[in-house]
Simulated assay, not measured.
Amino acid sequence: MRHRSVADLMTPMAVSVAPETTFKEIARLLDEYDITAVPVVDEAYRPLGVVSEADLVRRRLHGAGADTAAALMSSPAVVAHPQWSVVRAARVMDREKVKRLPVVDGTGVLIGVLSRSDLVQLFLRRDRAIQEEIVEDVITRTLRLSPSALTVEVMDGRVTLSGTVRDPDVVPVLLRLCDSVDGVVTVVDRTRREDVPTGK
């Protein structure tokens, strides 16, 4: 069961600017490439921060001061790594309240950008494909449960699990694996635990 990584969804060879890049040049790049932000990088191409449309708007509203990328940027840059799962990247975006993450390699060099709109692609996956992966990969292959014991319903990415589970310890694992399937928005647990009599 292979899950999408940051490397699968990021935009490679990201547009970037130097600390001394001017306000007007940044605005031109955002318009030319139809993007909403650019990473600011040092001489070694390591991200120092990010300048977004919002940063430019704030500069226009408040007038004085910031006229270069170094002064405009939000820093330090919150970055992602290509091997991260998209779930991890999404959680970092949510926690840090950012809409995009520069992606860096093992030496900290910029290799791409992951945006919130890239993550949305995951949730366009068809419900039938999600259901098949849960039944075949999660339930049957990974957990080695009988697919007939559980019912998996998927609607708009919302997974509902029902049926009987003999081992209650399996349920948290089942829920976690289902939640990690690409395209799943939420998982509802309606399974029942089978009462197994204990002998003396």
Rank of each mutant, 00 (worst) to 15 (best):
T22W: 05
A89W: 01
P76M: 00
E32I: 04
V57W: 10
M93N: 00
L114P: 08
T22F: 08
D105K: 02
V41P: 05
H62T: 15
P147D: 03
E53P: 04
D127V: 02
R125Y: 04
L145T: 06
A37K: 03
V86Y: 05
W84C: 02
A89G: 02
Y45C: 13
A71Q: 15
A18E: 08
M13V: 09
L30I: 05
D42A: 02
G63V: 06
S74Y: 07
K99P: 06
L143H: 04
V86I: 14
R59K: 15
T107D: 15
R141I: 03
A69G: 11
R88G: 06
F23R: 14
K99S: 11
P76I: 01
H62E: 14
V113D: 11
A64R: 13
R58H: 14
V41L: 06
A90V: 03
Q121C: 02
K97R: 15
P19L: 01
R144F: 07
D67V: 14
A80I: 00
R100M: 07
R95P: 07
S146W: 06
R100I: 01
V120E: 09
V103I: 11
T11E: 08
P19A: 09
L114K: 01
V38T: 04
V120H: 08
L56K: 09
L9F: 02
R46T: 05
L72G: 09
V41I: 13
G49Q: 00
P147S: 06
I130Y: 02
R88H: 13
V40F: 01
P47S: 00
V138S: 07
E25A: 13
D94K: 12
R88E: 15
A7G: 13
S52N: 10
L114C: 06
V138W: 03
D55W: 05
T11S: 14
Q121N: 04
L150A: 04
D127C: 04
L29N: 01
R58P: 04
S16M: 15
A90W: 01
E32Y: 11
V120W: 08
D105N: 15
R128S: 14
L124K: 15
L114H: 04
P47Q: 03
L56Q: 04
R144V: 13
T11C: 03
L124Q: 12
A18C: 04
L124R: 13
V40N: 07
T68Y: 08
Q83A: 14
L110W: 00
A66G: 13
V152T: 02
I130L: 01
G108A: 10
L143V: 00
R126V: 11
D105C: 05
V51F: 01
A129R: 15
D67C: 10
V87S: 11
R91W: 10
G112I: 11
V152F: 06
S148N: 13
R88P: 12
D42K: 12
G112N: 10
A54I: 14
S117C: 10
R144C: 05
A27I: 09
S74A: 08
T22N: 12
A69C: 08
L101K: 00
G49K: 00
I134Q: 07
R116M: 12
V40P: 01
R59T: 11
P19V: 07
A70R: 13
